[in-house]
Amino acid sequence: MKGWYLEKGPESDVVISSRIRLARNFKDVPFPFKMKREDGKKILMGAKKAILKEGKENSDFEFIDLQQLNPIKKQILVEKHLISPNLAESQFESGLIVSSDEKVSVMINEEDHLRIQCIFPGMQLNSALEICSNIDGVFEESIDFAFDENYGYLTCCPTNIGTGMRASAMLHLPALTMTGYIKNILEACGKLGITVRGLYGENTEALGNMFQISNQVTLGQTEEEILTNINNIAKQVIDQERILRNELHKQNPFRFEDRIYRSLGLLSNSRIMSSEESFRLLSDVRLGVDMGIISNIDIKNLNEILISIQPASLQETFGRPLEPDERDIKRAELIRNRLTGSNS
């Protein structure tokens, strides 16, 4: 396996990953939902040519024609956050350019012609923006982007106009969720032009206690201002989460540790495991690892499990299509193997 989740980043006890996405469109071609097939091909060709130049330092990029890809392979890309569910379902000319380490990817003909994306482990929005800007620069050498002096980069949806940038950090917030304080955070962030949403679920019912913090505003502020804003807010949330974790542990260490070890016990021994249950239990184990209660499991290992227990990745690992019931059995098997593997 390869990807951002195989490395440990800064603040990794709370922050799972940081992602920057830039939306860009070719100047003289209608946006994807309005363009003709030939236009779609033109965009694919233009994007490919701009990045996959031979002999250049960025030749470690690969182009994937999404129309030629089978549904399971597409779904794996979705589970790894390399493409959006919308792009996976697209019947149109669409493609993906991805770096060999899978940290950088470019979706072609999603809602906008190009969606340049970079994911890093831990809190590293600034480095992710730097990489995205470099890729943006490489595209700009051969492509004229739709840009307006007053509006900035023009996008299909007015919510992205301006910088075209969405910066998001994925946070693991079990203590804030357990204590219910997450509600206050959700409300406060809304007032600051920041969106917080559950990663796999909806609102406060976030599966696995994972939340995504991202900017709402893309016009008016500079890229740096947007990042400063998100970094500051994330820092406060991270601090609160850490304080609460320690407080909860201090209040009743036996109960706290019991919960963590019970979850670990279930994950290490169960024979049937739904994805919902595994997300919940993995959150407990992650908390134990982050707080040094469990010392023989690596956070990278947990990140990898998180990706590989999703339906398409699971079917890829076992090399055949699996019915939902069978998936739960195989999921339990995979988690057991990975966890005991890291114990040895």
Partner: peptide
């Protein structure tokens, strides 16, 4: 949407 209508970015 943005509270602002003058672009300032890159």
């Amino acid at each position: 949407l943005h509270g602002n209508v003058q672009y300032n970015g890159k």
